[in-house]
């Protein structure tokens, strides 16, 4: 019904904006800028950032869904070079320099509560930056981290089946079913 290009552009919207890398991901293209090296420490750090954004509550969090590893694949395969640079510089600063300036210690040495307070403030700055930035300016690196976390988590098996409800294939469609507060949303 909807044409393919429209369908792609809708899938690629998260938090009211276009997700970096989503179009390349969905169309099966690579941006031709692969070759970033992420160490195991980098992946662990990204997992902890993701876990702070979407922690385990009554349901598993982003770390269990291996969102850190997901981020490295998307950034490597689907980000443009200038966005890759902004992402790499951003996480480097976040891991040590900015964390030390704000919390007096590296990110991984901070407690979950300290990390949450720090990233909440960073999220505000990023949201403010996004509102005022020029169209061709790269996104704030924390906006990248946040959208990658949401995308990676809710499309993972853990996120789709444990945090959300997943309907297996073959399915069916019913236009109207009852809903009560607390019922989980459908994953897809």
């Amino acid at each position: 019904m909807m044409n393919r290009r429209e369908a792609l552009s809708r899938v690629a919207l998260i938090m009211g904006g276009t997700v970096l890398g989503a179009e390349a991901f969905l169309s099966g293209c690579t941006t031709g800028t692969t070759g970033l090296k992420f160490s195991q420490d980098d992946i662990s750090f990204l997992n902890e950032v993701a876990e702070t954004i979407l922690p385990a509550t009554g349901t598993p969090g982003a770390k269990e869904a291996k969102v850190g590893e997901f981020m490295t694949v998307i950034v490597n395969d689907c980000y443009e070079a200038k966005d890759q640079t902004a992402f790499m510089e951003g996480i480097k600063a976040l891991q040590f320099k900015d964390s030390k300036a704000k919390m007096g210690k590296a990110f991984l040495e901070a407690s979950p509560a300290e990390r949450t307070a720090f990233l909440t403030e960073l999220d505000k700055q990023a949201a403010e930056f996004q509102k005022t930035k020029k169209p061709d300016e790269t996104k704030h690196y924390f906006t990248m981290l946040k959208e990658l976390t949401l995308w990676g988590f809710f499309s993972s098996e853990v996120g789709a089946t444990k945090a959300l409800r997943y309907i297996a294939v073959p399915g069916k469609y019913e236009g109207t079913v009852p809903y009560k507060k607390g019922d989980k949303a459908w994953a897809t």
Partner: peptide, 10 residues
Amino acid sequence: EDKYTFGRRA
């Protein structure tokens, strides 16, 4: 708010 859908409709 008390209504939802079931399944994916193409």
